[in-house]
Design a protein around this nucleic acid. Sequence first.
DNA 1: CTTAATGTTCCCCA
DNA 2: TTGGGGAACATTAA
Length: 261
Amino acid sequence: MPELPEVETIVRGLIPRLTGRRIVAAEFPCQRVLRSPMDGLAGLRIDGVRRSGKFIVFTFDNRRSLEIHLGMTGKLLVNGEPGPYTRALFTLEDGLLLYDDVRQFGRLELSSAGGRGRTAALGPDPLELDAESFVREVRARRSRIKPLLLNQGFLRGLGNIYTDEALHRAEIHPLALSSRLSRPRCLRLHESIRQVLLESIEHGGSSISDYVDAEGRRGGFQSLHRVYGREGQPCMVCGTPVRRIVVAQRGTHFCPRCQRR
DNA sequence: CTTAATGTTCCCCA
DNA sequence: TTGGGGAACATTAA
């Protein structure tokens, strides 16, 4: 569900509500979403909340950290009502933090003191990676460009929506070979990725079906998507109907005229 | 009834 | 070693 802009929006909402608060109690009605034992959370103070790719990371006063991945339908809600899909429940000094997840694809993992856990294996953040490094890395790989951008070990944070949107802005076919993209084309892709992510963050992310921020509000960027979810509708640039194919088992939307192979 | 959905992981094959 | 394809996970909505 949530890609970089959605997770960034959630984290920005969590920071003022959680920083400095202590966890009074933690309950886990659903074992499936736990990737590690959850012992010892009660009494810990939340020192920081940050985003790492699509992960939300809490750091505590004992130097341990909690990494949360929202999967497809995960939500972190401040002061929400517990319901049938509440998979974790944190009682804080001044309120409740809920982890709701209909499909249970999300994961919670407590990592050791000072350890970076799962996020250590991720590629660079697309908003921090400089253009030259991006060009070099893309051209060094031999992969179709869409699966490469979805690979979290290559770049952290892009998912199905923003990959399609960025490739359309850069006029690159999703099946183009990364090693054969020209330098200017790669530079344009780097800039397209940055722009689409930053614009989406400004609009609070995209709400397709499930996504809401920490306060339960939907995002607004979905109405500005140029190809994602717009199969058959005219391309906003040239008017050609947007086409949908399947790439890496994901629905893939592109303009067959603007994005030639 | 069938298909698709913002994601990741694991297994097998080339 | 790298990359591609498919299945699996669980649930809902169209």
